[in-house]
């Protein structure tokens, strides 16, 4: 049984509240597009100026790890969608299952990332002034790794936050707080999670597949 949700008094109906919350999340995602977007602009500028360096430097990234993470995130988006639809249909047990799966897949992403970063540190492929790798000789190469670490790092922070939100959803779902009458937080966290996937969908080819 879902616990009854009372909509806030300044909204005329529960539906108004839902639509307002949903649109609020879209406006928030607009801000995320612009924030990550700034990094993509920096990427675009430097890639346009130093295309050969980008091509050389990207060879030092682990494409298989990047591709694995892409698949992991796509799978986690699938499980997230299924968690939302399960909640919408009132199937609490399935919703919990899919939320747990999403969380675990996100954890997978972090583990792969850990290995990737560790390898970079080991090779001295560090950002900017700390770059000490001997193989990659282009003087601008440190910039590539600055962009790499800042972009994937900021993305990783968003993954971490997402995991926290999914865990929060898990708790509330287990307590029966969501169902067909009220599933707003599940849907909105879902949007956030899909957005995190969206950013990676662009990060992967732009950083790992510089042809």
């Amino acid at each position: 049984m879902t616990t009854t949700h009372h909509h806030a008094h300044h909204f005329a109906s529960a539906n108004d509240e839902f639509e307002a919350a949903k649109q609020g999340m879209w406006v928030f995602l607009v801000t995320e597009v612009l924030m990550f977007g700034g990094l993509f602009v920096a990427y675009g500028i430097f890639r346009g100026l130093y295309p050969d360096m980008f091509h050389e430097a990207h060879k030092f990234l682990a494409v298989n790890m990047g591709a694995t993470n892409t698949l992991v995130l796509i799978l986690s988006s699938i499980t997230m969608v299924l968690a939302v639809t399960a909640t919408q249909r009132g199937r609490r047990d399935r919703a919990v299952l899919f939320l747990v799966l999403t969380f675990l897949l996100a954890g997978c992403f972090l583990v792969v990332k850990y290995f990737e970063y560790a390898h970079k540190f080991h090779e001295g492929l560090l950002p900017g002034g700390y770059f000490v790798n001997q193989e990659l000789k282009d003087p601008k190469a440190p910039l590539f790794f600055s962009l790499y670490f800042v972009m994937t790092g900021l993305h990783m922070v968003h993954v971490l936050v997402g995991m926290g939100l999914i865990a929060w959803l898990f708790r509330r779902t287990a307590r029966g707080e969501f169902g067909p009458q009220y599933y707003t937080p599940v849907e909105l966290v879902g949007f956030y999670w899909h957005f995190v996937d969206l950013v990676w969908i662009y990060l992967f080819p732009l950083l790992y597949l510089v042809g």
Partner: peptide, 29 residues
């Protein structure tokens, strides 16, 4: 629309100061 770009700008500058990322630093390219 605009404030998030300030956010990333200030963040990048903090990273310049702390981690020498060099995106805006001519000495690093």
């Amino acid at each position: 629309l605009a404030t998030p770009v300030l956010a990333i700008t200030l963040l990048l500058l903090v990273f310049e100061r702390l981690f020498r990322i060099g995106i805006f630093d001519p000495a690093i390219g």
